[in-house]
Computed example of a mutant assay.
Amino acid sequence: MLYVKELTRQFGINTAVDRVSFQIDRPMMVGVIGRSGAGKSTLLRMLNRLTDASAGQILFEGQDILTLTGRARRAWQARCAMIFQQFNLVPRLDVVSNVLHGTLNRRSTLATVFNLFPAEDIHKAVGILDRLGIAEQAAKRAEALSGGQQQRVAIARALMQDPAIILADEPIASLDPMNAQVVMETLRRIHEEDGRTVVANLHTLDTARRYCDRVIGMRNGRIVFDGAPELLTAQAAREIYGAGADFSEAATSTEIETLERADKDYALSMMGP
């Protein structure tokens, strides 16, 4: 389905992604983890063709998408939808219009300028919002919504493209633990119910274990771990994050249960023997 081969991206003398290779041969939910600067975001941006690769191949159903230009490149970006950490919504537009922007790649310039949408697309957008539990927010401006709601609007916009692959670049990094859980559960449900591949950049080990079928760990632009979540041991985590024996998984966590456990352990340690 998707084959990444020796993918490399250089910025001057710096190598952000260094000869990365992996294959996804069936729909699954993949978590890409690693510290800031590991190359995770650059990898996703190359997969979506927002950033050009310096070398390598990205094959989807046998076609090298790095060779696509113009309309073919835009068609690929519709099939490989992107969700961003900062939502990338138009704040003053209503929620439905933001979702309908997922159809811009197939609309005429005139329709885009005057913000004209077919009734069929409007009904589809509202249906997607209902599926994600935020249909009652449809008429509100995007800026009036909470962060978690805005991220679900961004997911709805991606679904309007009917993509085969959804790329999520740090989708919960700016959210509180409760909203982070809702967003991750939404992405997981989309994968399971629709059979879509989801690739999400994540900072947190527990989130990757809980929601992903497979975890790829990156360090300094290279893959240093690729396997099932249950193989993500403390030793593997130290290798991914370049940490010593005192590495604490709770330090990477946004999961409510892990944070509560860490707070309890800290309180007990302060009480002394």
Rank of each mutant, 00 (worst) to 15 (best):
S108L: 09
M82G: 02
V99Q: 09
T67Y: 13
L104W: 00
F84I: 07
V99E: 06
L110M: 14
T69N: 15
S97Y: 05
A53M: 14
A53R: 02
S97D: 14
W76Q: 03
T109P: 00
I83W: 04
W76T: 05
R74P: 00
P91K: 05
R73Y: 10
L116V: 12
Q57S: 08
R71A: 14
L104D: 04
V96T: 11
H101I: 07
R106A: 12
P91V: 01
Q57C: 05
F117E: 05
C80R: 00
L104K: 03
C80T: 07
T69V: 13
M82S: 05
D52T: 05
H101L: 09
F60W: 10
A55D: 15
S97W: 03
D64S: 04
F114M: 14
Q86A: 06
N105F: 14
L89C: 12
T112P: 01
Q85A: 15
D64F: 03
P118D: 03
C80K: 01
L89K: 04
Q63F: 00
L116Q: 15
N105V: 13
L110N: 08
T109M: 11
V113L: 15
Q77L: 06
V96R: 00
L89H: 03
T109A: 15
H101V: 07
A53F: 05
I58F: 00
K124Y: 06
Q85M: 15
D121G: 04
M82K: 01
C80N: 12
A53D: 06
T103K: 05
E120P: 01
L93V: 06
Q86R: 04
L104T: 09
R92W: 09
L89T: 06
T69Q: 08
